[in-house]
Nucleic acid binder design. Structure first.
Lengths: 136, 136
DNA sequence: ATCGCACACGTTATACCATTACACAATCAT
DNA sequence: ATGATTGTGTAATGGTATAACGTGTGCGAT
């Protein structure tokens, strides 16, 4: 591992398997769903999934959705670099979309800074109705 | 219950007990912590807590912190009305502070609206370091 | 070369968070 | 009174996450 930018090429076997499961999924997956999908590949215990997820999140390849207790592959080719990500979560169809707005990041940081708080990581999850479900 | 504005006076016995536990706590409490604190008052099962919490959250008297799986009493006397709340969560001392910024709400709504998404509820949780911990 | 270290991995057990299902009681409008 | 709604109590279960242990492997420093 030559530097701190990770791509899928750098991953260990377990990390690759978990990343693969998330990448081919259409939406977020829970750790236990991933476990079930990987039993054929030798996965036996939750910890194998959680350990891989921890690293993938650390590398910025995967995001954790706090309000769903689930995980999604980052939709940006190289996620490293944009500190702020927001998600929309449709309560009707379950669709999750990743929004990137650098200005939002700045705004949140400065809002927090007003009370002397330094932001390290931010969670922004918007629940509501997506365009398709509103139309249907 | 004459209208849809709830205050602590409107609460049922269980709701009052849970509200009381949260109100006198210095920070967020998990449902099971609340359960333990209320055993002396007859609480026996998690569901008693969760049912009360559901209502209190619905009434806007309590907020749920998704990233902590915990709950806090709203710090504003009358929380009903400000649609958007953001939290700072200090990773060092655990302190949780509620920020209100109406402009942020507008901004998030319009950001989502750009992709046709209608926001019903938003979660904004900023993790980092509070002023005191940065100074210490 | 081999020792020590860091790191990924495997397994079991456990802790923690939340809901389902069923039954009973209180309240209120008709 | 009756039925609808809401709150309550209890037991059982399901879902999420970590602790604690041990093993193996790669690799740099001595």
């Amino acid at each position: 591992m030559s530097d701190h930018v990770h791509t899928t090429a750098d991953l260990t076997k377990n990390q690759s398997l978990v990343m693969g499961a998330l990448a081919k999924a259409s939406g977020p997956l829970s750790a236990y769903t991933i476990l079930d999908e990987l039993r054929d590949h030798g996965f036996r215990a939750p910890l194998q999934v959680y350990r891989a997820l921890d690293k993938l999140v650390e590398y910025g390849l995967v995001h954790r959705l706090e309000s769903l207790n689930a995980f999604v592959a980052c939709s940006h080719a190289e996620c490293e670099g944009h500190g702020q990500t927001a998600f929309t979560i449709c309560q009707s169809c379950g669709d999750v979309t990743e929004l990137a707005d650098d200005d939002l990041a700045v705004r949140l940081k400065s809002l927090a800074a007003r009370s002397g708080f330094t932001v390290r990581h931010s969670t922004v999850e918007l629940r509501g109705t997506c365009r398709d479900c509103a139309a249907g």
